[in-house]
């Protein structure tokens, strides 16, 4: 495919900013409220998530893991309703019944978040099966982490997707450090060896490089649409130092786009991650370097996103907790 246009690159960046500022607000909300449950933030994965969302067409479906906030926002969900859900409020995307772990916005094709490791990969194969049966030309997306490939159900699902030629794009966010595999215990030398052994076409992309990700996911989605067969993409990512949030915090600080042009000012324990691995700063630099925008333009965009998130927070805070009677409704579909 052709290199994305300036407009497409800016749209990708806009979505990435939404994702980042959303997560930062989640941290602030977690600090301000002692709500139950915990969240798994998608910070550092924005380039991948936004690129996947942009490769989706109307009618496509996506299933994600628990690290889902970025995807739901990138798919265009109302951030206010997403905050409200995370806070267990009445106006949440799921009316407060799902929480962070089960965000759902079916209208936008964001089918479900499975908090069971291996859940999303198998459900997405099912969605692809339904889409194939319906003959709509739509495809499904399975988002999962490297740990998922330890699960037998992942292997079963890959085999099924291959043998039945299901139109599914497997998106594996590998945020384990190369060679160390802290989150997965797979004996395979490379994650993609598993799907490759089942005759699934595989690609590898730097998941923090917004341009590479945008091209790779668009190309992969096109391939799934054209061939009707599954494709597996492994997006390598450097784990964000705050990804395991026991206590809500900003270990790498609040994102500052202007740092992209002043990397020498970055100091501290996590300077490497900020300088090399933050997809937002990398994208900022690339957009400016390629003349897609100047810093002022990007800062203006960022300011708008921040305002949007403030409003969204206010919306969520104003939303009451659901009435207890709601706990007993909606167990069965009518």
């Amino acid at each position: 495919m052709a290199k994305p246009s300036h407009a497409e690159r800016l749209e990708l960046f806009r979505r990435m900013l939404h994702m980042r500022r959303f997560e930062e607000m989640v941290i602030r909300l977690a600090q301000a409220y002692e709500y139950t449950g915990r969240q798994h933030l998608h910070i550092g994965h924005e380039a991948t998530g936004a690129a996947v969302a942009m490769a989706m067409r109307a009618g496509d479906k996506i299933h994600t893991t628990h690290r889902n906030h970025g995807y739901v926002i990138a798919c265009g969900a109302d951030p206010g309703r997403a905050f409200a859900e995370i806070m267990g409020r009445r106006d949440g995307l799921n009316g407060g019944k799902g929480g962070s772990w089960h965000l759902c916005d079916a209208e936008r094709g964001f089918q479900s978040t499975s908090a069971m490791v291996g859940g999303s990969i198998a459900l997405a194969a099912g969605a692809a099966f339904a889409l194939k049966l319906a003959g709509s030309g739509n495809i499904s997306f399975a988002h999962f982490g490297d740990g998922t490939l330890d699960e037998g159900v992942a292997y079963e699902s890959l085999n099924i997707a291959s043998i039945y030629e299901l139109p599914v794009l497997f998106v594996c966010e590998n945020n384990s450090k190369a060679g160390q595999r802290p989150s997965s215990m797979l004996a395979a030398a490379r994650l993609q060896d598993v799907p490759a052994a089942l005759q699934i076409h595989c690609e590898l992309v730097d998941g923090a490089d917004s341009d590479a990700a945008q091209i790779a996911f668009q190309k992969a989605a096109d391939r799934v649409r054209e061939t009707g067969k599954p494709v597996f993409i492994e997006a390598t990512l450097e784990r964000w130092p705050g990804s395991h949030q026991v206590k809500a915090a900003f270990p790498t600080g609040v994102t500052d786009l202007s740092l992209a042009l002043n990397l020498d000012k970055v100091e501290g324990k996590h300077a490497d991650w900020i300088k090399q691995s933050d997809p937002i700063l990398r994208a900022t630099r690339a957009l400016i370097k390629d003349g897609v925008s100047d810093l002022v333009g990007l800062l203006e965009m960022d300011a708008k996103v921040n305002l949007l998130m403030e409003d969204a927070r206010s919306f969520a805070e104003a939303s009451p907790f659901p009435d207890a009677s709601v706990a007993f409704t909606g167990v069965f579909a009518s």
Partner: peptide
């Protein structure tokens, strides 16, 4: 899960 995911997607 294939059946469940397909059902959720309209089959």
């Amino acid at each position: 899960q294939l059946g469940t995911g397909a059902a959720m997607a309209g089959a």
